[in-house]
Nucleic acid binder design. Structure first.
Lengths: 184, 184
DNA sequence: TTATTATGAGACAACAGTGTCGCTTTTGTC
DNA sequence: GACAAAAGCGACACTGTTGTCTCATAATAA
C-alpha cells in the first residue's frame, strides 16, 4: 500500500470511529461509511472487509495499555492524574465507544474486554497497594475499591449518552473516590 | 382480541424479552421472534407492528416505579432491602435488558430513560435524607451518594454480560455503599 | 348448524445491506 | 512519456428483513 492508501485507511478509521461513537456497533453499515468517507463500495472494501475488522482495529489502537505503575512518583499524585484524566473522558461524550463496545462484546468478543478489564483492575489494585504502603492512602480493601472505580466509571460512561450530564456527575465520581481512598 | 389472542401476545412479549436480553435491541428481528414463538409473519404482525413497539411495551411493564418511600420503616431496613434486591439483580445476568436499553435509548428515546433515572435518583436522595435525619446514616452528600449507587450499579450490570462475575463484585457493591452510608 | 369473528399461514414485493468483479483513473518510477 | 502498480468506481447478484395481503382454519355466538 502506497502513501495515499495509508492516508485513506486512516481517514476511514477516523470516520468509522465517529460513526461507532455515535450509533453503536450494529447500527453502522459499510454503506454509511461510504457516505461519510466519500468512497465507493469498491474503494472501501479494498481496505476493510467489514465493520468488524475496522472496529477491532480501532480497539487495538485504543487499548494500548500502560500496565506499569511509575513508582518513583507518589501514589497520591498518580491518583490525581488518573482521576482528572477520567473526569475529562466522562465529560467529552462525543467520542465514547462505550455502546459500540458492549454490542461488539455481546457478539462473542467477551474475552478481549474481560482481559482489558482484568488488567485495568490489577493496575488500580497495584496503585492502591502502593499508596497504602506509603501511608498516603487509607488501608482500604483494594479489590473492593478497584471495582468501585471501574464499574462506577463504566456506568457513568454509558449514561452520559442518555443523559446530558451536568459537570456534577463527574465531580461526584472523583470526590467519592478521593474520600474513600485518601487520608483526611 | 379474544382470550387466546391475549395469551399469544403475552407469549410474544415473554420470548421477546429473552431475545432482547440475549442479543440487545438492534440484533433482534421480527423473523427471530417468529422462530422463537412458532408464529408466522402474518400471525406475529397481527399483534405487533415491529420490534420497537414490543420493546417499548416491555419497558413500560418493567418500569412501574414505586416512587414513594415508606417512612414508617427505618431507613436502615429499607436500605438493606433495596441493596439485597439490587444484589440479586446483579447476579442473575440472564434477564438483563441493559444492552438493549442503551441501544434503544441511543435510537432517540433518551427522554424516557432520563426520566427513569431522575426518579430513581430522587428516590435514593429521599431515602438518604430520611436516614440522616433519623441519625441512622452519616451526614453524606446525598446527591453524590445517589450518583454512586446508580451509576456503579449500571456499570456492574453492563459488565456482567462481558465478564462472568464472581459473587464478589456484587458484594463489593453492597459493602461500599454500606461503608459510606452507615454509622460505624 | 351456521354465521361471524379471531387467529394464523405463507407468498410476495420492496428494500437495505453485503461482498465481488471488471473496468477506469491516478500515482509514481524508470 | 511509457508502464506498472495502486487506488477508486459503480454495477451486479445475492441475502436477509420488512410489512402486507389473501386465503385457510379455529373459536364462538346465534
Amino acid at each position: 500500500m502506497g502513501d495515499k492508501g495509508t492516508k485513506t485507511k486512516e481517514a476511514i478509521r477516523r470516520e468509522a470511529y465517529r460513526l461507532f461513537a455515535e450509533k453503536g456497533f450494529k447500527a453502522v453499515t459499510m454503506t454509511d461509511l461510504c457516505e461519510r468517507t466519500g468512497l465507493s463500495r469498491g474503494g472501501l472494501y479494498r481496505y476493510y472487509a467489514g465493520t468488524e475488522e475496522i472496529f477491532s482495529e480501532i480497539l487495538s489502537e485504543e487499548y494500548v495499555i500502560a500496565d506499569r505503575i511509575e513508582k518513583r512518583e507518589k501514589a497520591g499524585v498518580i491518583l490525581e492524574d488518573m482521576l482528572s484524566a477520567i473526569k475529562s473522558e466522562i465529560m467529552d461524550k462525543e467520542l465514547s465507544l462505550s455502546l459500540a463496545i458492549y454490542e461488539y462484546a455481546n457478539l462473542g468478543n467477551q474475552d478481549f474486554f474481560a482481559d482489558i478489564n482484568e488488567r485495568a483492575k490489577k493496575r488500580w489494585i497495584g496503585l492502591l497497594e502502593y499508596g497504602i504502603e506509603t501511608k498516603e492512602f487509607r488501608a482500604v480493601d483494594t479489590e473492593q475499591v478497584a471495582d468501585l472505580i471501574l464499574y462506577y466509571y463504566q456506568g457513568l460512561r454509558m449514561w452520559s449518552r442518555v443523559i446530558s450530564f451536568e459537570e456534577s456527575a463527574a465531580e461526584h465520581y472523583v470526590n467519592t473516590i478521593k474520600q474513600i481512598v485518601l487520608q483526611q
